Computed example of a mutant assay.
Amino acid sequence: MNIIIRKMDYEDTSQVQNIAKTTWNATYEGIIPLEVQNKFLKSAYNDEMMKRRLERSIVYVAEVENKVVGFANYSTVREGGIVELAAIYLYPEFQGKGIGTALLQQAIEELDGIKEIYINVEKKNMIGLTFYKAKGFEIVKEFDDEFEGHILKTVRMVMKI
């Protein structure tokens, strides 16, 4: 399988929105109520927010056979070389094929001055936790997070570069 990782173009917006919705619904079924998921997705991935993501952060997409199948959203590098990883989302059928790793590696290679990558993961998101632990992320703290009226059990992790 030939995987191409590139910076997101605005024309990729509808594909990225679809990946976010599909992945959220599959990952958080039974963890986060569907109405909470839908409210979040509508606010965080609407066209205006996607435009802001492109202007204010770094978004990479993964293409397989000319189809966008995943994306990763990073903050810019902050003081001390800190980067926040907002999301790595892949269509479920493309998970476990090295695409998430490629999206992570792209940021490590391209973002100047990067020293640490932080991510917040829902504690019951075993797919995400397993992936991040396998990549060398370590848990730094756990906390409750109010999210659209729902309490999430959040795990904060860091990867030192």
Rank of each mutant, 00 (worst) to 15 (best):
M50N: 09
G80E: 04
V69H: 00
L103I: 10
E146L: 12
N120P: 00
Q15K: 14
K135S: 03
N125Y: 06
V121F: 01
E65N: 15
F147C: 03
D112L: 04
V69R: 11
D9A: 15
I108G: 08
V68D: 03
T13D: 00
M159L: 15
G149V: 05
I161T: 14
M49D: 11
V36K: 07
L129M: 14
V158D: 07
E109Y: 12
L54K: 15
T154L: 05
G81D: 03
F71G: 02
G80F: 00
V158A: 11
L34P: 00
T130Q: 07
R56C: 12
K133G: 04
V83S: 07
E29L: 11
I127E: 08
N66C: 13
R56Q: 14
R52Y: 11
E110W: 05
T130C: 07
I151T: 13
R52S: 15
N2V: 08
A87K: 09
V140A: 06
A102S: 15
Q17Y: 04
I31Y: 00
E48G: 01
G149I: 08
D112T: 08
T130E: 04
Q105G: 05
V69M: 10
G98E: 13
F147N: 05
R78H: 14
G100W: 03
N66V: 01
N125F: 06
I58Q: 12
K153Q: 11
L104G: 02
K135I: 04
K39G: 07
N38Y: 02
F137R: 02
S75M: 05
N46W: 12
K160M: 10
Y74Q: 03
Y132G: 05
G98I: 11
V121A: 15
Y28D: 10
Y60H: 09
V158G: 09
M1I: 02
A102Y: 06
M8G: 03
I5L: 06
K124E: 11
F143R: 13
M8W: 03
I151S: 14
E29C: 12
K153F: 00
A20L: 09
V155H: 06
L34C: 09
L85R: 05
I19N: 00
T23S: 15
A86W: 10
I151N: 13
V61L: 05
Q95V: 07
F40R: 00
L104W: 05
F131W: 02
D12N: 14
Y132S: 11
M126S: 15
L41Y: 06
E79K: 13
Q95H: 08
E110I: 01
Y28R: 04
T130W: 01
E84L: 13
K123Y: 05
I88W: 02
I114S: 08
I82E: 13
A134C: 01
D9E: 14
V121K: 05
G113S: 04
K135H: 07
R56H: 15
V36C: 07
A20S: 11
E93G: 10
K67L: 11
Q106G: 06
S43R: 13
K39V: 02
V121Q: 01
Y91K: 11
